[in-house]
Amino acid sequence: MNWQFFVEVLVSGLLAGIMYSLVALGFVLIYKASGVFNFAQGAMVFFAALTFVSLVERGMNFWIAVVVTLAVMVVVGIAIERLVLRPLVNQPQITLFMATIGLTFVLEGLAQLLWGSQPHGLELGIPDVPIQWLADNANINISQFDVFAGLIAGALVAGLAVFFQTTRIGRALRAVADDHQAALAVGIPLRQIWAIVWAVAGFVALVAGLMWGARNGVQFALTFIALKALPVLILGGFESVAGAIVGGLIIGASEKLAEVYLGPYVGGGIESWFPYVLALAFLLIRPEGLFGERRIERV
């Protein structure tokens, strides 16, 4: 076996995994704080990317477009909390889940209504070419863009982890995730917290949208990456930011390795379904995921 090729596959898998993590992060944030599985996260990613690309194509400066899109996503997030989730407080989980499915269609429709439905290309200024130094010295081809995406995702996660663990609002978010009633009793305003969470999820969707848009083009298919986030969540645990990252890495690496080394024996094309098999196996062994919160039971 050619080790350089192996490293190439592994690293590109890990970096692709980081991209999945970016999407999964949005789910984790909302699930953690409000117990809602936000099916619309994929649509939010699409919405953010399409809005950004359309603004840039209309001649807006790159950074101004980033800021404007971010503002739009924060407003969208808060609006979702206000208009969709607030009236449904105290409803069963399944009701909330169904509401987010409905939200998916609304967001997809709205995005295309505003900006049209044709696919766009997105250029972030980082070319998707192998890093020259590595190619020259070790004969390994690793995309510059993938590394860039990895760094961005890493920074985002580190930032979120610090935010959750050490700040007053972060602590309140975790408290709300644990026990709504008790959080209310100590004076944490739930609605404000939820609005913050949705706004942050909007921000994460923007970052994910930029990365995925730059890689695959901004098109309707972007909404389906939400489905790739599912096995990541099952592996990493729904409540854990760290889990979303590790889960993403495992899924990314294993799907690429499986495709290259196992694929030939079964006729190829296993990359698209291998993660789900992995997730299924995980559900049997460790249903709460690698880093999910274990249900604490005192005996």
Binding site: A175, D179, V186, I296
Partner: peptide
């Protein structure tokens, strides 16, 4: 401030973090 029946601590937070949430306001 109410202390609810059945304690209702934030189970996954440490004892100290629990106390700190009390000062949220």
């Amino acid at each position: 401030c109410q202390v609810m029946e059945g304690r209702h601590c934030f189970q996954h937070l440490t004892v100290e973090e629990n106390l700190l949430t009390g000062a949220f306001t």
